[in-house]
């Protein structure tokens, strides 16, 4: 029974947990704020790029495709480290929070642009032609005919991708952001006990299990009949 007791003492130490609950709760709050900022900015930028891409300006499109490829190919942690440790060398200091927010926003922008664009191209050409022939302008067609159909099929892949990238907020702990992981790691060093880490894991489960379940539901709800 000794092993079990030491296991409980290490990972489910209620005294330590109670003491550091406020700290981890603060981390949870920071994670939520950071995640919301990333989701809003990343999706908005991604949609904007996809719309610009639909104008069909060749040079601009190449630039967009290249940018998207860059942020799909680079690991998010590399971008965060580059911004946080690299920019000061150019005399530009940036906080860990800002570096994490900017990096993950750019990554989500890239992935969502790709998905939005795939959605736009999946709308049959006849829809465009029919809408334009009724006298709608290019933008009206895009806004009222194409995007509503395009967005619908992008919902499932977009949800999953957004969840995956939002979980990247934990990477902020590497550059000193006191989000859930950062907060529980400090608590772990203060208390010399890993129970706060268990608390952190629970916080992520509380935050993300509903979102993952929502993603699953959306996937079936929005699935197209083949």
């Amino acid at each position: 029974m000794d092993a079990l007791n030491s296991f409980i003492f290490s990972f489910f130490n209620l005294k330590v947990m109670a003491q550091y609950l406020p700290l981890v709760a603060q981390g949870l709050g920071l994670t939520v704020v950071l995640a919301l900022l990333i989701v809003v900015c990343g999706l908005a930028l991604g949609l904007a790029l996809a719309v610009i891409r639909s104008f069909g300006l060749r040079v601009l499109n190449w630039a967009i495709i290249f940018t998207v490829d860059v942020f799909r190919a680079l690991p998010p942690l590399v971008i965060i480290v580059l911004l946080f440790f690299g920019l000061p060398a150019a005399g530009l200091s940036i906080s860990g929070f800002a570096a994490t927010w900017l990096s993950l926003t750019l990554v989500l922008m890239a992935f969502s642009e790709e998905i939005f664009w795939a959605g736009i191209t999946a709308v049959p050409k006849g829809q465009w032609e029919a809408a334009r022939s009724t006298g709608l302008s290019f933008l009206q067609t895009l806004r009222m005919v194409v995007l509503p159909q395009a967005l619908r099929i992008t919902v499932p892949p977009l949800t999953n991708r957004t969840i995956a990238i939002t979980k990247g907020t934990a990477l902020g702990s590497v550059v000193g952001v006191a989000e859930i992981l950062g907060a529980s790691q400090s608590a772990m060093s203060f208390s010399a006990n890993p129970s706060p880490l268990t608390l952190g894991a629970i916080a992520y489960l509380v935050l993300f299990i509903p979102v993952v379940a929502l993603g699953r539901w959306i996937e079936t709800r929005f699935a197209w009949k083949r």
């Binding site: 790691q185 880490l197 935050l207």
Partner: peptide, 24 residues
Amino acid sequence: TDVFRAIPPLVLLVFLYAGLPFAG
């Protein structure tokens, strides 16, 4: 599947690397 998709991989890694040694 849902549990391990909800926990960020870095959290898992830190737990395994820095947490488990406390339990020997």
